[in-house]
């Protein structure tokens, strides 16, 4: 039986991608950010998942303005890094797990979460930056050390799903994974956030106090976080802080009781408060 062993959250700031691709990680601005993930990379190397389900949002890369799927799952054999305006990132092609992905999609639909099945798509920085942060700086001829199932959630066009809906969706994702017959070790990622606003005169908003409460709640009392309305995310953490609903999707897939084994918070990462946490199922 497949089993979820841990959850990982991290911001997926595009400037991290540019920094890795231009090999500028040692610059004083960036060094503390990459250092913050050193222990996490060790944890991941020791943890050795067979599959990662990576919950992120597509930033108008795979999906253009013609369609905004709320919950989607990548069922293809592989996914190329997207060209977001400056060429494809020099990172490994993402290898999927079509059999598990198809199983999850079908189980979740029958469980009343109506997934959009995606049989072909490119994956943008929202997916490749978290892989770099947890698996390291691999090149296009390398391979990511495990299978990755991309799981995009719409947070671009409003309304995105509520935090509560994402949390419940995570619970359905868990039921689907645990009904897969093969013994697989699965880690679920929830990415994006934390406080940041990329637009208008309020750009650059950071709310460390709110972010810290959210990090504490994620470990200790996620159900309380599911009651936060969208307007509070935007008012308190900026228009792009809404991405944190995807962290609740990850949290819904874990046990009620979890052990927080890693936490990192850093301001600034470009326009963003970078947050990262690793939770193990106990």
């Amino acid at each position: 039986m497949a089993k979820i062993t841990a959850g990982v959250t991290t911001s997926h700031v595009p400037a991290i991608a540019a920094t890795i691709d231009l090999k500028k990680q040692a610059l004083p601005y960036w060094a503390p950010i990459f250092k913050g993930f050193e222990e996490s990379k060790k944890w991941m190397a020791e943890h050795k998942p067979d599959v990662c389900i990576l919950i992120y949002n597509d930033h108008a890369s795979a999906f253009d303005a013609t369609i905004f799927p709320t919950f989607a799952i990548g069922c293809a054999d592989e996914f190329l890094p997207a060209d977001e305006g400056w060429g494809r990132r020099p990172v490994p092609t993402v290898k999927g797990h079509p059999d598990l992905a198809c199983h999850i999609a079908q189980k979740m639909i029958l469980d009343e979460f109506d997934m959009t099945v995606v049989n072909k798509m490119d994956v943008d920085h929202g997916l490749t930056v978290p892989l770099n942060l947890l698996f390291g700086d691999l090149g296009p001829n390398d391979e990511w050390p495990c299978k990755i199932i991309p799981f995009p959630i719409n947070v671009v066009q409003y309304p995105p799903p509520t935090g509560k809906r994402c949390y419940n969706m995570g619970q359905a994702l868990r039921r689907a994974i645990e009904s897969y017959p093969e013994d697989l070790k699965v880690v679920v990622f929830g990415t994006g956030g934390m406080s940041h606003q990329l637009q208008g005169t309020r750009a650059g908003l950071i709310n460390k106090e709110w972010d810290t409460r959210f990090l504490n709640g994620l470990t200790q009392d996620p159900v309380a976080l599911t009651k936060i309305p969208h307007s509070e995310y935007v008012r308190e953490t900026g228009s792009e802080g809404i991405e944190m609903v995807m962290w609740l999707a990850m949290r819904g897939a874990l046990n009620e009781n979890v052990k927080e084994v890693r936490r990192f918070y850093h301001v600034p990462c470009s326009n963003t408060a970078l947050g990262h946490i690793i939770l193990e199922n106990v």
């Binding site: 066009q157 606003q197 637009q199 208008g200 309020r202 307007s231 935007v234």
Partner: peptide
């Protein structure tokens, strides 16, 4: 509620 937030346009 979003219209009350300063300097922010929500892409609805």
């Amino acid at each position: 509620e979003f219209e009350d937030i300063p300097g922010t346009l929500i892409f609805n």
